[in-house]
Design a protein around this nucleic acid. Structure first.
Lengths: 250, 250
DNA sequence: AAAATATTTGCCAAATATTGCCAAATATGA
DNA sequence: TCATATTTGGCAATATTTGGCAAATATTTT
């Protein structure tokens, strides 16, 4: 196996999972620990990944607020993303919003799918998923620099033009008292509308979202809307989730 | 097996996998190591693949077009950008298109101005200039991954909503026979419209654009439109430039 | 908790394997 | 037969593995 092949495999693994161990890579590649270690050292030098004790981790590109969120329950998000990715066929049309979970989905899709048609308000996601797409539409509007995504009325209007087979959105918080909530009016409205524009609506919520209450209450979802999580939600949420079809990634 | 057949097989393998070993190719082709090595050497000379230890690797041509353009006459672009930047006051509203010259302008502005209001179709530019802005509007539409910018009818429609004090666009080419030209219809239309939406219209053209002819002819500009360059244009262009107000950055 | 012990990991250096490259020998095709 | 292409063999350069040890981390025991 050539160095370049190994590099490709390692980078692929790192893109799939937030972190990979040297041990798993040695058996995946059929080479010794030391070789893997040197490969990681090399790739880290290129800035393609970060060298951590015991393996390699995905390199996180700036943006303080976003960085925290990506790392919170990164493993759960990864599981959710893998599950969502498995449900999306080649050539699918997808409306997908901004967020750390949806970005993870994009990372998975770009490795395994092609000819997708994607509509999004997330600049980073658009850039990331482009190689797997026949078409990427960026919803225009006022840009939030912290999120690297667009929001506001104009985004809403642009979105109205598109329908898709899948809508993939992330949840701000799920609580017993308030149900589904979000942190900004713009994001909540946009997400609700995205769900309405698709045949199959998926809400992504890793277990760190359970019990979280945001300022804005989201409208009720249609029956049959999918909720994808990484762990069974606590029983006190069962009322809130009754209309939804629950799927747990693994 | 003829050399050309081998070349075809090798190139095919390289396109299938990120890298192929000489060893695997020897059995695939039924020839000796040395022959494969010389084949790879030859193909690498053609730029069709990259010769690496142990085999061949796919040549990565990503971002080549943009990178080339940034480097072409980088000094001239820098002068132009400095001049443009000096004309823009704090708090100005700006419509600015995608391109290497306009990106350089953004780089200057972000260091010296604040409270700007920017409308653009360039994702990278939006990200870059955001720290100096009160508001950044990204024009939505179909995204071109190579340019990291949006194009098409939808961009046009979104743009119609905005007017600004300044429009800053880059020129594809300026020639005696064809006048101002561009390379795609979408870009030409968008740029023309951007100029119309602003009080002060600026066209950026470094000296490498003189004599260049693109496929699409741009409509005539309004009198008083500014042309910013880094060097005096050759006299044979004087007819084409008669309506424009020429400014040379330094 | 804290200490003691076990395990894992990083890193180094020597041993081993693979590969590049050269030149001579051999094969192939006009 | 000549010219060109390909193979073969050998050596130096490079990559990989192996084994070892110390530091870091995890686990168990006081």
């Amino acid at each position: 196996m050539l160095p370049d092949e190994r590099y490709a495999v390692i980078l692929n693994e790192v893109n799939l999972h937030p972190a990979v161990s040297i041990r798993s890579l040695t058996e995946r590649l059929g080479v010794s620990r030391e070789t893997v270690r040197k490969d990681i050292e090399f790739l880290a030098g290129q800035g393609k990944l970060a060298q951590v004790r015991g393996g390699a981790a995905r390199v996180v590109s700036k943006e303080a607020p976003m960085r925290d969120r990506v790392q919170r329950n990164a493993d759960g998000k990864s599981k959710i993303a893998a599950h969502v990715s498995s449900m999306i066929p080649d050539g699918a049309s997808i409306i997908i919003d901004n967020g750390s979970s949806t970005l993870e989905v994009a990372r998975q899709l770009v490795n395994h799918r092609k000819e997708l048609q994607v509509v999004t308000n997330d600049l980073k996601l658009a850039e990331l998923i482009a190689p797997a797409c026949r078409e990427v539409v960026l919803l225009g509007g006022r840009m939030d620099p912290a999120e690297m995504a667009t929001f506001g009325l104009e985004v809403f209007e642009n979105l109205a033009r598109y329908r898709a087979e899948f809508a993939i959105i992330s949840a701000g918080g799920i609580s017993e008292r308030a149900g589904f909530t979000d942190f900004t009016r713009d994001a909540a409205d946009l997400r609700a509308r995205m769900l309405m524009q698709a045949e199959t609506a998926m809400i992504l919520a890793d277990s760190s979202k359970f019990g979280v209450v945001g300022k804005i209450v989201m409208p009720r979802f249609q029956d049959g809307t999918l909720l994808i999580t990484d762990a069974a939600p606590p029983s006190e949420l069962s009322n809130v989730l009754s209309d939804l079809q629950l799927q747990i990634g693994s």
